[in-house]
Computed example of a mutant assay.
Amino acid sequence: MTEVNEEKAAPAAPDVAALEQEGEIAADYLEGLLDIADVDGDIDMDVEGDRAVVSIVDIKGSDLVGTGGEVLEALQELTRLAVHRRTGERCRLMLDVAGYRQGRRAELSKLGARAAEDVKRSGQSKSLHPMTPFERKIVHDAVAAAGLRSESEGEEPERYVVVLPS
C-alpha cells in the first residue's frame, strides 16, 4: 500500500497587476460602449480581494441596470468576454453601474439575516426567490454570519437559496 501525502496548498495571493490590467481593459471597452450609446458616465477601477471591480458612476437613469439588474448582468458578461479576448485568461471582473450592486448587496444582506432569524424562530427551512450567483453569494454570507447553513437549489436561472435550521 502506497501512502500519498496530500497537502492543501495555500491559496495563491491575487496578482494585483493582472487584476489592474483587467480593470483597464474593461474600462476601455466600457468607455467605447458609452461613446457608441452616447451616454455620459465616468469609470472607476479598483481591486477588491481576488477580482477587478469596475464601476460606471455619475450616470443618469437606470438604462444600464435594467429591471432587476438584467442589463447590468449582460454588460458584465460582455465586458468579461472582452477582457478574456485580450488576455486569454478567465475573468471574474465585477461591474457596477450607479451603485446598484452596492445597494443590492445591503438589501440582500438584510434579506439573508431576516431569513436566518425566521428559520431560527420556526425551526423550519425557508426557500427564497430565485437569484443570480452574485445575489446568492451575499445571502449565503449573511446566513453564515447569523450562524446557520444555506444551500443553493434548482437550475439557472431559477436557482434559489434554502436556509436550513441548525
Rank of each mutant, 00 (worst) to 15 (best):
E155V: 13
E117D: 15
A9C: 01
P14K: 09
A145M: 06
K8Y: 13
G99P: 12
M45E: 14
K137S: 10
V39K: 10
E155M: 05
H84S: 04
L128E: 01
A116W: 03
L30C: 06
K60Q: 13
D118V: 06
D44L: 11
E48N: 07
F134M: 11
T79R: 03
R80H: 05
G32D: 11
V65W: 02
M1E: 11
A116M: 01
L34V: 06
E89C: 01
R86L: 12
A115F: 06
K137L: 00
E70R: 12
L72A: 06
T87W: 08
E158D: 15
H129W: 04
R51V: 04
I43Q: 08
E7D: 12
E73K: 08
L75D: 07
A116S: 10
I59P: 11
A146R: 02
R101P: 10
V57P: 05
V162N: 02
D96C: 04
K137N: 08
V139C: 10
A82L: 05
A116K: 02
A52L: 05
V97P: 05
S150E: 06
I59L: 13
L128H: 05
E107D: 15
A115I: 04
R85C: 01
V54F: 11
I59V: 15
E7T: 15
L111D: 02
E3P: 05
V39C: 03
S127T: 09
V57Y: 10
S125V: 01
V162H: 08
R51C: 05
V54N: 07
D15Q: 04
D96Q: 03
Y160M: 07
M94R: 12
S122P: 13
P165K: 00
V119M: 09
E7I: 12
E158W: 09
A13L: 15
A115H: 03
R136D: 00
E3N: 13
A27P: 11
L19W: 02
E89V: 09
V163L: 10
S152K: 00
G99C: 06
G103T: 06
R136W: 02
S62P: 00
L93H: 06
L78G: 06
S166Y: 07
E77Q: 13
V47K: 08
V139R: 04
D42Q: 14
R159K: 15
E70G: 03
Q21F: 00
V143F: 04
R159E: 07
R121V: 05
L148C: 01
V4G: 08
P165F: 01
L19I: 09
G154T: 08
T87P: 04
R105S: 05
R121I: 05
A26V: 03
G147E: 10
K110H: 10
R114E: 14
R92G: 08
E158I: 01
D96K: 00
E73N: 13
S122D: 04
I25S: 09
L164F: 03
V162R: 13
G32E: 10
E77F: 15
E7G: 12
T87M: 09
R85W: 05
L164K: 12
T2R: 15
D63E: 14
H140Q: 02
V139P: 10
L72R: 03
V97Q: 00
E7H: 11
Q102T: 14
V163Q: 07
E155R: 12
A18G: 04
